[in-house]
Structure formats: structure tokens, C-alpha cells
Design a binder for these strands. Structure first.
Lengths: 361, 361
DNA sequence: CTGAAAGCGCTTACAG
DNA sequence: CTGAAAGCGCTTACAG
């Protein structure tokens, strides 16, 4: 069944069939109805490839889920608790705007070949990237080759010539979120506050460390490198980091750069005999689904994944359809989700003074 | 940049370029190398639509995530803890076999239009369906219209003429899993075992009820309808079901048809003042990521989502490429994951006898 | 071993 | 208001 068949059955030319399908104004209602009747009757839908070949858009965007792991070839995006919700949100928003979503996973740098393939062969009109490291050269190349992109978690640059400046960028307010998390612990009376960092190749990794430092500085609490341990956003790294941390220090609170590491750290704390929050307070970041089910339920920082997905999809599609370079940058606010894993500490330091006590209310 | 340009630059005809791309044997190595060099130099990838129009496969499958909700227009597949891991697994396996995956969400029956669209317009060559109700007429239509399909969680029928018999089907061993879960509780000494059912429009809903009944029957424990309450697989329904249940009965154990409802029920039990597992044992089904983090950690039944995804993808692609109707049916085994939410009960019934005690070891 | 040519199913400028 | 025709970028039977 093709447009020729429809034309023959409806007693018109293929031109007219095409005009009806594309809603041209100059088709009389009767002709239009006659053609539509045949189209409906035969479940006819124009061949997408033929249309594209004639220059119509494929109305397909790519969603590229990047999860570059140094060590393993065991890929476990399967239970990545973070990408799932975002992925579905992207699909929903795109579908609502009449776009299909091709999802592509990237575990090694060479997997970017899959993305180049669908871009150069004109299958997709644009792509959204998540899980990327900052300044990723593979993505840079794609942007420079003309792929329309929206990148999540990428530094917003001053340099106007930087390739990423030609991309839409959607970030959480990482610095401010980390700042607020640390400030929250300080206001609870903590001064020995440790930080388990995320993957420092990612914006969310180094920006959250920055927010942590900023809060300490503002409160006049000296930064101690012994209180900062490196993690890489996965649960096991939080677990190991907690052990390393307590070998060299004795913090009363921990700010973990994401919830997964906070969960790993809580596990280690339990094994080491520390109670949360009685002995050690802990706060995470991201508010993944699991966090509210933990005992104690994890206090964390939350940004709307839905909003981020919406911003990425809508702006990407706008930039595709308007054929202009829309390069907006967005920073989505982060708010505190107070649960059970943080506790006010008894204050026994000389630092304590009226003004400080007041600020804690 | 198209094949004509490449041909011109390489000094050959478009025919030869095409032969090189498609790996025809009758191209001398030097010619081939000469052409490949130009192709590489210009990042040339043949236009996917043009190839398709000439009859090449699109190498794209659909993954249709169905989540039909009666009540709400708030769609929350976002945090559906079950679809996420399966989705990524499907994408990975498909990518490995050189296929792209178009993901489509269906929240209302009319959303199936999106699937029909990409099928009739030849964008996809086949599709995998998850979250479907048993005997869904919309899917039936698609199968009958010739879409190659793999359906997860669908009854395997005797009737050879049934449309679903033309589809690949991949199920968990629901009946056996539910049977084992119930048997496990019985072996722990329980006889007052309640069941919170899943959505009875789905195979996993009614098949798990069947397994529950089977185990009771085999052990000579009378089935009591007062111990069976209806749920629909979402957390809140488990929460409500637990309240309804304890209004009319006093079970010592609960088999919830999935983990999400088990979580909801645990919440209700806590509110009602029952301790798990001291007062009430509870077992779930699916082993979602959250379950291991619960306190007490949830004992549950687990099937390999990875294996299910692999079976669905590989067989679907086989059926597409071999152009024959592969209609294999698979039942993936389910195993017990013993954690902390179930406890042996003190036995104080006349029913207790030597043989029974033995079977409990 | 290689090129010229037909044709996949559309859309759209052109002519009437 | 409508049809005939060109052409999008490929692939492949055909001819040599």
C-alpha cells in the first residue's frame, strides 16, 4: 500500500494524496474527505524513509546514556537508579511533541561510534546526553560536526568559541546544593564535616566539592584535606571511602556527593559500629527512589529530574525546528529533603557564641 | 556528502562505491582501499532513509513500555523501579546486535497509535512489549497486521489461531515462583498465609495467585478468601490492602504479588503496630533494587531480567532477519532470595505431626 | 571487474 | 484546483 495505490483507489493523482496528507490548503473538502476515507480504510501511513529522503524531518532524537567505567566490562546501567527516571521523562516529553526517541548506551569511548553513525546517516535530528564527563572530546566533535545537542551536567563556559557553547546545557545547581547541604550540617552544630567526592571528571563531582568548600569558608571552618575522600558516584566507592575516612579522621558528619555513595557509606558506618545519625550524621545528593526507604531515611538534596528532562527536550526540539542555534543554558534549583539521617550535635566548642547559636535557631 | 561525491573524488562510479560499502566480493583490494580512504576522510555514512527505501532494513526495533492506569493522568513510569533495568538491558543487547532501539511509552489505549505509526511508516522492524495486560486487543491487532513482536508477561495459549501464538513470549515462571514463595512460608510453620494479589488483568497477577493456591492445596491448607486481598502492583495498593486484610483476618504471613506492594504493606504493618518478621512474615516478588535496602531486608522471588531481555531481543531479531515467524515461548526460572522479612513461627497446632516437622527440617 | 540506468515512495515546483 | 514530472540518495540487475 503506497500513495500510488491510494491515489488510484480514490481516483486522484499522487500529488493530491500528498497534498491531503500534508494538509495543503488548496484541496476542496470533498476531495480531501474522499482521500482520507481511503487512507483510513487501508491503514495507510506514508513511508517515513521516502518522506525523509524528500527532506522531511525524521522527528527522532537520540538519548545517549553515557556510563564510562575505567575498570569493568560488566555494565550495570541496568540498575542505575538515576538514569531510569530521567530516561522515561525524556521519552514522554519527546513523544508529546511528536518526536521518537532512540536510546543509545555508551560504555566505552568507542561506543560513541554508534552515535556518530545515527547522526551521519541522518536517523536523528539531535541528541540529549547524560552521564557525560566534563569537556568530553567525543561529544565536542559531534557538536562541531553540527549535531544539535542538549547536554546534562556540563560546565557552562566563558569561552565563546568552546564547542559546548553551541550546545544547550541543563545542570542542577550543584554548587549551591552542596553549599546548602554543608550549611545544613553546620547549622546542626557540626564542624568536623567530611566530604566523599563524586567522579571529579564530572561537573557534578567537582562543583559539589566547591560548594562544600564555600560553605566551610563562609562559616570560618578550616578546610581539612583529611576530611575529604575520593569516590566516583557508585555505591561501593562510598563504602570504601567511609573506611578510608575513619582511618584518618573522626568526623561527626558526612556530606556524600550523591545518595548512592551515602548508602555505601552508611553500610560501612554500620559495620564499623557507628550509628546514624546518633554518632555520625550523613547527607546525600539526588534523592533517588531508594533513599526514602532507608533506615534511617536519608536526608538529601533534590532537583527535579522532570524539569531537567523537559528543558532538555523542549529546547532541543525548538533548536531543531527553528533551524537556528538555540544554545540556552539552564540551572535547575536544588532543595533540601530533610529526613532522618542528620542530627543536631551537642556543642562543646569555644567557637560557640550567641550569634552562632542564634543562626541555628 | 553523498555517494556521488565519494564516487567522483575516488574516481569511480556510484555503483562501485555502493559495492564497497556493502562488501561485495567482486571489488579488487586496491579499488576497495581507494574508496574506503575517501569514505573515511569525509566521514561519509550512507543516508539511512535512502538505503531503506531500496529495501535495506532499518535495523531498528521498538521497545513499548505499557503502563495503563485507570485513574490518573499523572504518569509515573518515571520511578517505575521495574521497567528501568529491563529497558537498559534491551537497549544493550540490541545495540550489540547492531540494532537501534526506539522507546515508546503507552499510558492510554490510544497511545498505541504511536506504535502503529512507526510500524506502518516502516520505522521499526519489530517490537518488544512490556507491562501489557493479558490478551491486549491493541497488541493483538498489531501482531495480526504483521508486526514482529516479543511480548513479556503474556499467557502462553493452547489455541493455535490466537494472535499471540504468532508472537515470541517471554515470561517469568510465575506459577512456580508463587508456589515456592508460599511453600517457603508454609515450611516456616505458617498456615494463616495471606496473599495480596497483583493486577488481575496481567498474567503475573493471576498466575501468582494460582501458584499461591497450588501450594496451599498441596499442603492441605484450606484456601480462605478472607486472606486474599486485591492489589494492582503499585505500592499504595499494597498499603491499602494490608489495612483491609487485617480488618477481617489475622494472618501470620503475607505473600505479596510484587515487591512494591510488599513495601506498601510493610509500611501499613508498622503503622498498625505489627513487627516484621516477629509478628508477621512477608515475602515479595521481583527483587527490585530497593528491596535489599529495606529494614528488614525483603525476602523475595527473583528472575533474571537480563536473561529475559536477552531472550526477547535475540529471538525478535532472529525472527526479523530470517524473515520467518519465530514464535518461541520462554519461561525464565524464579528463585528465592532469602533475606530478613520472614521468620519461623512457633507451631501450636494439632496439624503438626512428625512428617510435617521433618519436611521443615 | 565496472558503469549506466531503473526504481524504491514520497513531495513539490511547474504548468495548466 | 489538479496532474505530470523531476529528484531526494541509495542499490542492484543488466550489459559489457
Amino acid at each position: 500500500m503506497n500513495s500510488k495505490d491510494i491515489a488510484r483507489i480514490a481516483g486522484v493523482s499522487r500529488s493530491t494524496v500528498s497534498r491531503v496528507i500534508n494538509n495543503y490548503p488548496n484541496v476542496p473538502p470533498e476531495t480531501k474527505e474522499k482521500v482520507l476515507k481511503v487512507i483510513r480504510e487501508y491503514n495507510y501511513v506514508p513511508h517515513a524513509s521516502a518522506r525523509m529522503l524528500r527532506g522531511k524531518s525524521s522527528k527522532t532524537i537520540g538519548l545517549v546514556i553515557v556510563d564510562l567505567k575505567k575498570n569493568s566490562d560488566i555494565h550495570k546501567v541496568y540498575d542505575n537508579v538515576y538514569f531510569g527516571p530521567f530516561t522515561t521523562a525524556v521519552i514522554d516529553f519527546a513523544n508529546q511533541l511528536g518526536y521518537n526517541v532512540l536510546v543509545i548506551t555508551v560504555y566505552k569511548a568507542r561506543d560513541y561510534k554508534k552515535v556518530r553513525e545515527v547522526f551521519y546517516n541522518k536517523t536523528i535530528n539531535g541528541a540529549i546526553f547524560i552521564g557525560v564527563k566534563n569537556d568530553d572530546p567525543d561529544i565536542k566533535n559531534l557538536i562541531e560536526a553540527g549535531l544539535k545537542t542538549a547536554v546534562i551536567d556540563q560546565e557552562i563556559r566563558e569561552d565563546e568559541d568552546d564547542a559546548f557553547n553551541k550546545s544547550i546545557i541543563v545542570n542542577m545547581d550543584n554548587v549551591n546544593g552542596a553549599y546548602k547541604a554543608t550549611k545544613y550540617l553546620i547549622n546542626l552544630g557540626h564542624t568536623e564535616i567530611a566530604h566523599i567526592t563524586g567522579d571529579m571528571e564530572k561537573l557534578s563531582g567537582f562543583a559539589r566539592l566547591e560548594g562544600y568548600k564555600k560553605a566551610l569558608k563562609e562559616e570560618g571552618i578550616p578546610f581539612k584535606s583529611s576530611l575529604v575522600v575520593k569516590g566516583d558516584f557508585v555505591e561501593e566507592s562510598g563504602y570504601k571511602a567511609a573506611y578510608r575516612l575513619f582511618k584518618k579522621a573522626k568526623p561527626t558528619a558526612i556530606f556524600a556527593s550523591n545518595d548512592q555513595m551515602a548508602i555505601g557509606a552508611m553500610q560501612a558506618l554500620e559495620e564499623m559500629g557507628y550509628k546514624v545519625p546518633e554518632d555520625v550524621s550523613i547527607i546525600g545528593f539526588d534523592d533517588i527512589t531508594i533513599s526514602r526507604y532507608l533506615k534511617p531515611a536519608l536526608t538529601t538534596m533534590s532537583a527535579s529530574l522532570l524539569q531537567m528532562a523537559e528543558l532538555a527536550v523542549e529546547n532541543l526540539i525548538k533548536s531543531i525546528e527553528e533551524e537556528i542555534a538555540i544554545t540556552a543554558k539552564f540551572v535547575v534549583p536544588v532543595k533540601l529533603v530533610e529526613r532522618e539521617s542528620c542530627k543536631r550535635i551537642e556543642i562543646q566548642r569555644e567557637k560557640m557564641n550567641d550569634e552562632y547559636a542564634l543562626s541555628m535557631k
